[in-house]
Design a binder for these strands. Sequence first.
DNA 1: CATGAATGAGATTTCATTCAT
DNA 2: AATGAATGAAATCTCATTCAT
Lengths: 197, 197, 197, 197
Amino acid sequence: MMKQSIPKLQKKKEKRAALLQATLLLINQGGIQEASMSKVAKMASVSPGTIYLYFENKQDLVNQLYLDIKAEFSEEAFKDFKKEEPVKESFEKIWYRIASFQTQKSEEASFLTQCDNTPMIDEESRQEGLKHLQPLVDLWNRGQEEGIIKRISPYVLYAFTIYPMAFLMNTKNRSYCKLDEQILEKAFEAAWDSIKL
Amino acid sequence: MMKQSIPKLQKKKEKRAALLQATLLLINQGGIQEASMSKVAKMASVSPGTIYLYFENKQDLVNQLYLDIKAEFSEEAFKDFKKEEPVKESFEKIWYRIASFQTQKSEEASFLTQCDNTPMIDEESRQEGLKHLQPLVDLWNRGQEEGIIKRISPYVLYAFTIYPMAFLMNTKNRSYCKLDEQILEKAFEAAWDSIKL
Amino acid sequence: MMKQSIPKLQKKKEKRAALLQATLLLINQGGIQEASMSKVAKMASVSPGTIYLYFENKQDLVNQLYLDIKAEFSEEAFKDFKKEEPVKESFEKIWYRIASFQTQKSEEASFLTQCDNTPMIDEESRQEGLKHLQPLVDLWNRGQEEGIIKRISPYVLYAFTIYPMAFLMNTKNRSYCKLDEQILEKAFEAAWDSIKL
Amino acid sequence: MMKQSIPKLQKKKEKRAALLQATLLLINQGGIQEASMSKVAKMASVSPGTIYLYFENKQDLVNQLYLDIKAEFSEEAFKDFKKEEPVKESFEKIWYRIASFQTQKSEEASFLTQCDNTPMIDEESRQEGLKHLQPLVDLWNRGQEEGIIKRISPYVLYAFTIYPMAFLMNTKNRSYCKLDEQILEKAFEAAWDSIKL
DNA sequence: CATGAATGAGATTTCATTCAT
DNA sequence: AATGAATGAAATCTCATTCAT
């Protein structure tokens, strides 16, 4: 009542974060249809009405979650990325960072997969999310100019190197198959082999 | 009233088919949340109550749709499949058939992608759907014994050869990129390169 | 196809009977709300549409069931009833016959209880059902004239002698308490004591 | 808007009460089948959704109504009940209090009758409701020890003394017969005669 | 007579959103 | 800012009844 140990702004951010986190978990568990606003509120220990102080509506909540996680994803993917490094080395680093994201932040990764394969997200937000991959596209371009990488559309390159990780992630989650280091190496080999010249 | 042009059984099947088709389109358009039973009924020109003559409930409707399409998918994928053919030839044929399914039956393909990356489908139905791929797994096994294919889990093989097509399909649908014959060839090359020894 | 082992009329009656029986059991189990026309049909091994060949609608089905059972009840109650016998003897006989009906035909008895304490039955049918008790009312009248029975309304006499059996029946069904011969005798004593002068 | 005449808690209780009252009236009028949730809502001047803030579902609504009224009933029945009074006096007081409840709160009484003769109520709630009668059972026990009351099961005692009032109530409601003081005295006499030694 | 698929109104219940406090 | 009771439209599902066969 007297003093607030946590500054207001931070408290606000915390509530927003709690709401996003709750949404993330609920959508992963049962899809968007199971993530009702009141469940989200309850899980975030907040009143349903409060959600609307932070988000315009449900769609906005999901869109913001998507964009936040996409940003987190690309930050992770391109951490320590240096433009000058050799193409393969750079690609390998990025690939493993993404793999690491998939395993370390599996909830986030699952959610992205669900968004990217579903009409859950506004087309606008989806476009917005795509931009994050630009550094990788640039890298591939360089690789193609250097004659190291096949001359195919970045969509195809993405489809055969990055996108498969989502599948492995999901199957791993459903525990048909463990993703240990050895398998990861094999997987990277497959990814690289599919696009290298 | 005059003459009975359509036999009963066929009429019955037609209604079931219309319901499944409506569900397919609606889920592709807006996800499962937008595919309400009344919309499905309206689109199939049927009364809401009628749905429940053919399906137990919404989940059952979606599950059956999934299994039906999975069956259609694998029938297409393994049409003319002969066990004696060389591994690569066989694989190539299957791969192209799947690619063809993705483009010819794009609604069905989109739907499968959505199901496979979402908690939309019962785990039971999902397992059931997986069985359809057994011939491909067997083929890969043979390829591994013959020393043609890398010794990695079929999940990984699938992730790098078949799963990418879903992505290409979706991007194609969203028309960022056309899937012409030339691209297809490149894509197959990528797929094969990723797993061949 | 050729010959019908069961004459048509009988078959018709059998179907009607089966429908009434099914209704009886279902209403006893879960009340009128649980006795849907399709459940009734299924239990009677008949198509839903067929019900409407025998009964106008659901209300009519229930009303007819009520009246049929009321008739059965009073036939049982007044079997071998002779107007000349002494009042107490007559009453005792009737009372025991009713008790016997309650135990022998417990489903029917339960159903009557439910009808008589519920707005389930048309007022008209209810009035109709009441007429069956006329002989008992007459007997009581005679008893009153003979100075054997208290001079109170037949409704009250009924309330304290016959109506209690429904309660005992129900509790017996729910098996809190067994209705053996000894208890029955005590119960009759109570009934008689309550109205005798 | 101007001043808050009614405290929140009271308002909340009022809404619950209005819902229970509406349910009571509707079930009395047409049985449980006629008491749809929307009718209940409308009669309580409340939105359908609001019901579910106060009750889990329809069954819960009915169960709570039953238990509430049973409690009200027994509070009325055993008001001013003193353990030391002579058995007959005590019994008489209780009996008249119940009679008074039946006439004063005829809707509530009708409802209880309907519940007690119908599979409308969960067995659990029914058991719960039975407990309220314990003081009467104890009284009877004492009467039996004192040699005043017949040695028969409390079920039978109940059947011949209390249960009949429900019948009289119902017939009174249907106005075949008025329950004036004189009739009431006769009725009590019948009740007492049936169980006294 | 009998069927049972089909209907569509209506039942129960949920849920995104609002608003008085 | 925050609450959470309240809303009411809409979702899922049921069911008495009809009608073409």
